[in-house]
Design a binder for these strands. Structure first.
Length: 594
RNA sequence: GGCUCCGUAGUUCAAUUGGAUAGAAUGACAGGUUUCGGCCCUGUUGGUUGGGGGUUCGAAUCCCUCCGGGGUCACCA
């Protein structure tokens, strides 16, 4: 049992005996003492002053005295206004330190048979264009959340949903057929997803020209758009696809194949992966029977024209159409089908969708419908609604060409890491494989940290110039600290064998570090509960800053007192381990040297 | 317009979920045994938490209102 919880239950006991009141665990809970004050844990006593009929100071004083008598771990306390600061014994912290400092999986909860199954959907690409900056945030978040959930003791299943059908992919196909002259990834040397994306743009170009020409001849914009030959052709192509026309399907398969080869490269570079990929072309028909079944059970209604909808007005939402009058599915119907399919495939207890907050309304409706259909697992659905990525000049607009491409972005980061690292000249003895691996580690570390340090729920500004910065609150800063500790530990290898004993004197900064690594498991827990990698990112940064300050102020290998020296070496070891484990949760590697 | 999310140093982000004097980074300026790896460390500077009201021992956080911004309101996805 964690010491905070022990203290909390003792506090409940204390106020019951002293003031004759019963309090909730929340009221008796302690929090970490702020660093400006002396102490380890703090109780806020204001909620008890009415019952104690004493001043806040005296209330705190009484509780403090009682706790000090009852708990051997509490050696002293002080009172500032209504705040009771408790200080734990060095022996307590020492006991914690010695029993965990060598544990390479410190903070991680093991997974066993009774672990919950947690599914996470992320990425969600379309097959008509390459991944962009928005997908990057999505993928990094999704992957990191999965790592955190695993570390918190869940069985995690990572799934992707690929939007591989519909008018958008037909546009690329048609343009390729008309203007492509048989171009392939091999013949052009282009990555498959980029090649297909090129023809999507190509379609738009020709289409716009047709529209403009018609408008010049006096048609309204609407008429021109609707009747442009290209638009009519592409709609016919979609019908052909739905009818199973062989030539159309063959072209579709070929071009999607190119795209998937391209995506695989991008996923690998990003360091993300999936246990199962769902394709909309395979699931889009599945929701229909569920809706029809819902109609029979009168959960849904039918209009005179045959379309089927659900009335959510009693829940503060609107009517939502689920099947068109011609009987075909709409987007949300596919999502209903896919969700049921997944529940049958994996029997998850939770399913989190990593999708941008522009779809908040969609998921509200989706979850509500699934609940109304009576699926028990529907209560375990969660929309991890993250904020959109914006650029200094505003939103990304594909029409204005301001989209930041994922592959280009990663390449830029790695090139910058290359340049910066070579300038420092510390890795002159690396061969080219080692060096390239390092540049990738640093460049991707910078990018990942930059995107994960901000609260997922908030929109974020992506400033290319700042993201590439390696100083301050950045990934490379953390990686550097790790590499430096690693170098220290290598040199210390011999002396570290001596037995670890508690030093006579423990410095404040050492004590702070011990307390910080002690927090790691609860940081993981909180990050898992709130689906927030940002908590881990900010925690590890704080730890690194504290370590650097300690490193600056105190000798480690050069410390003359051997007991203190051994302690400091092992404290460094413990910190390095927690840094590494934290970064792993963010999907970021740490280099042994840099 | 309805619904919804957001607004914190010049800028980018924090703030233990209602707790102490709102903290970091960056920028600017000033400093520090580059020999345990200086991609480091220490200062100074910078705030009416968008404005106003309310709730209470206590509000950046909860409620109301106004101002400003985003998203969303399809038989599109």
């Amino acid at each position: 049992m964690k010491i905070e919880n022990q203290i909390t239950s003792k506090i409940a006991e204390a106020v019951s005996i002293l003031f004759n009141i019963t309090v909730s665990p929340a009221q008796a809970a302690v929090q970490k003492t702020k660093s400006e004050f002396v102490g380890d844990f703090t109780l806020v006593v204001f909620p008890f002053v009415k019952a104690s009929k004493l001043s806040p100071e005296n209330t705190a004083q009484k509780i403090g005295e009682w706790l000090q008598k009852e708990m051997k771990e509490i050696t002293s306390f002080n009172v500032v206004k209504g705040f009771l600061n408790l200080e734990l014994s060095n022996e307590y912290w020492w006991e914690f330190f010695t029993s965990n400092y060598k544990n390479s999986s410190f903070g991680y909860t093991p997974i066993n048979e009774s672990s919950k199954i947690q599914m996470v959907e992320y990425c969600g690409p379309n097959t008509n264009k390459p991944l962009h900056l928005g997908h990057v945030r999505n993928c990094l978040l999704g992957y990191s959340v999965c790592e955190i959930l695993k570390a918190n003791g869940n069985k995690v299943i990572k799934v992707n949903i690929v939007n591989d059908r519909g008018i958008h992919i037909c546009k690329s196909m048609l343009a390729w057929k008309k203007y492509g002259a048989g171009e392939t990834p091999e013949s052009s040397g282009m990555k498959g997803d980029h090649l297909v994306g090129k023809y999507y743009v190509e379609f738009d170009k020709h289409y716009k020209k047709q529209v403009n020409d018609s408008m010049a001849q006096g048609l309204t914009k609407e008429e021109a758009e609707k009747n442009a030959p290209l638009m009519l052709e592409v709609k016919q192509m979609l019908r052909d696809w739905e009818d199973g026309d062989e030539a159309t399907l063959a072209l579709w398969n070929k071009m999607n194949g190119w795209v998937y080869d391209g995506f695989d490269i991008t996923y690998a570079k990003l360091g993300v992966d999936f246990d199962k990929i769902y394709y909309e072309s395979q699931t889009y028909l599945y929701g229909k029977e569920i809706v029809l079944n819902g109609l029979q059970r009168e959960i849904m209604q039918q209009r005179a024209d045959g379309s089927i909808y659900i009335d959510l007005s009693k829940d503060g939402l609107d009517e939502k159409t689920l099947l068109r009058s011609d009987g075909t599915s709409v987007y949300i119907t596919q999502d209903i089908g896919t969700a049921v399919l997944r529940a049958n495939d994996y029997h998850f207890s939770n399913l989190a969708y990593v999708v941008a907050n522009e779809q908040d309304y969609h998921f509200k409706v989706l979850f509500l419908i699934l609940q109304k259909l009576g699926y028990t697992w529907a209560n375990g659905l969660y929309h991890l609604s993250y904020g959109m990525v914006e650029l200094p000049e505003g939103k990304m607009k594909s029409r204005e060409g301001t989209v930041v491409d994922a592959d280009d972005l990663m390449e830029q980061m790695i090139l910058t890491a290359d340049k910066t690292t070579r300038e420092l000249g510390k890795i002159d003895d690396f061969d080219s494989v080692e060096a390239n691996d390092l540049f990738r580690t640093i460049g991707m570390g910078a990018l990942k940290y930059f995107m994960l340090k901000v609260d997922p729920k908030k929109k974020m500004l992506f400033n290319p110039a700042e993201s590439i910065d390696f100083n301050g609150h950045t990934g490379p800063f953390i990686q550097y600290t790790y590499a430096r500790i690693n170098s220290l530990l290598k040199k210390a290898a011999a002396s570290a064998i001596e037995p670890l004993k508690m030093p006579m004197e423990i410095q404040n900064k050492e004590r702070e570090l011990v307390k910080m690594v002690y927090d790691f498991p609860s940081v993981i827990n909180q990050a898992a509960e709130t689906y927030s990698p940002a908590l881990v990112a900010n925690y590890v940064y704080e730890l690194v800053k504290n370590y650097n300050s300690f490193y600056h102020d105190f000798p480690i290998l050069k410390e003359e007192d051997s007991t203190t020296r051994i302690f400091r070496i092992n404290l460094s070891l413990f910190c390095a381990q927690v840094i590494k484990n934290s970064m792993k949760l963010l999907g970021i590697e740490v280099p042994e040297r840099m």
